[in-house]
Simulated assay, not measured.
Amino acid sequence: MKKVFSVGISILLSAVVAVGCSSGSESKMVSSTSSPAATSAPKSDTPKGKLTIYVGFQEDHAIEAMKQFKKDTGIDADMIRMSGGEILAKIRAEKENPQADIWYGGPADTFVQGMGESLLQPYKSPVAEKFDEKYKDPDGNWTGIYVGALGFVSNKKFLKEHNLRAPEQWADLLSPGFKGQVVMANPGSSGTAYTALYTSLKVMGSEDKGFDYLKRLHPQVQQYTTSGSAPGRMVGMGEAAVGILFASDIIKLQEEGFDSLQLTIPKDGAGYEVGAIAMIKNSKNQELAKKFIDWSLSPSAQEVGQRKGSYQNLTNPEAKQPPKGVNFKELNLINYNTAEAGKERKRLIDKWNAEVNK
C-alpha cells in the first residue's frame, strides 16, 4: 500500500490549567487538577469525581473548553485529543472497561457507527430541545455542537508558478497540473476524510460513479494523512498544492498567518459535518457526564472556541456565530444524510481500502 502518512498518537501531554484564567492526531492529555487555582470553587459545591474526555476537534479550542468547564462547574476533567476514527477505535477497544466518559467533537456519522456498535449511552439533554432536528439523534445517542463545511485549500504560489486556477469543483482536482500534489486524510482514521468520501459519492450521483472518481483522484494524491486538518498545514508550508479539509480549519490557518492559502468551496456540492458530543456507554461518571453535555450545548460553551480561532458554525440557535465563519446560506450543500453515512461508514471505508488505496 502506498501514500499512507501517519501522525503518531502516542504522545501524552500533561498541562496545568488554572481556573478563571488542530492540531495533529496525536493523543494529548490535559488535566484541570494540577493547579492550586483548580480548588478555588467552594468545596461544598464541587461535584465529586473526575471526567475523562476524548476530543475530536482542534486542540487549542479543546484546552480552552476544559478551562472554562472547570471554571463554570468546578468539575475536574482530563482530555485526550485524537482524530475521530482513532476515538472510535479506542472506545471500541475499551468497550468492556471504558476509560473515558465523553466523546467530544468530530463528525456525527462516526458517532452513528459507534451507536450501531452499542458504544454510546443515550442522553437527551434539555438544552437540546431548541436545536434543529437534523443536529441531534432522535434517541439522544449524540447531539450536534457545531457544523463545518468541506473546502479546498490551495497554495497561491504554486498556482501562480504553474498557471493554474484554484479548484472550484470536485472534477478540478483531476487536473494534470495537480498530479501528485493533492493531500487529504485517510478516511479510516479521519472523520474529515470520510466526510469527503461520502460527499464525492453524492456529488457524482451514485456509489459506482463516486468510486470511479476516487480511483481517478488516487494518482493525484501525494499523501493520505492521519489527521483531517494536517493537509491544510502541509499546503501552507508548500509541501503540496491542494488539500481537502473543513473550511473552518482553512480559515484558522489563514488567521494564523498562512497568507499563501486560498480557500474555495466546491460549487457542485459541499459536504459538511455535524460535530457531535455523546456519553460513552457504561461511563463511570454518568451524572458528571450529563453535566458536561448540558454545558457543551449552552451558547457560552459553544462560543468558547472563538477565543482560540474556531470558525465552525454553532448549533445552539442562541449562540453567536463566528463573524469570519462560512455563511451556509451561500453554499451549495449536498443532502448529507448523517444516519446513512454512519451506517455505511465501515463498508465504504473497507471498499475504499480494497479498490482505491491498494
Rank of each mutant, 00 (worst) to 15 (best):
R307M: 04
N155Y: 00
A247Q: 11
Y336I: 07
G325Q: 11
K179I: 06
S35P: 04
L120A: 08
M115L: 11
G116R: 05
K202F: 00
T199S: 11
F178N: 03
I91S: 03
Y311K: 07
S83Y: 01
K267Y: 01
K160F: 00
G114A: 08
K130L: 11
S27T: 11
K343F: 00
K160T: 13
N186Q: 13
P187W: 02
S23A: 12
G236F: 01
N186F: 06
A341C: 09
L12G: 08
A193L: 02
Q254K: 15
E207R: 02
K290P: 01
G342A: 12
G140N: 08
V147K: 12
A301C: 03
F131E: 05
P187M: 12
P122I: 05
P219A: 10
Y311R: 04
Q312D: 13
P176L: 01
G257Q: 06
A149G: 12
K130T: 15
A276N: 13
Q68D: 11
G238S: 06
T33Y: 13
G74I: 03
H162T: 07
I244M: 10
T199I: 01
G105M: 06
A62P: 03
I75G: 01
K2E: 15
S14E: 14
S189H: 09
K267M: 07
G236A: 07
T199Q: 09
G238A: 09
I91C: 09
G205P: 02
W142T: 04
K179D: 10
P317G: 03
G116C: 08
P187F: 01
V7W: 02
S248W: 01
N285E: 15
N97E: 15
Q169E: 15
N337R: 14
R216F: 03
L150G: 10
W352E: 14
K291L: 11
A341E: 07
A93H: 04
T226V: 08
N155G: 09
A339I: 10
A339P: 00
V153Y: 05
K358E: 13
G305Y: 07
G148W: 00
L263Y: 09
A270C: 12
L159N: 10
S298V: 07
A240S: 15
G140P: 09
L297P: 04
S22M: 02
V183C: 05
A41H: 13
W352L: 14
Q254I: 01
K281E: 13
E344Q: 15
Q306W: 00
S44K: 07
S248T: 12
M1F: 09
S23N: 14
N332G: 12
A240Y: 01
S206D: 03
N337Y: 09
S298R: 10
P187S: 05
K71S: 14
W170Q: 07
S154T: 11
E344L: 14
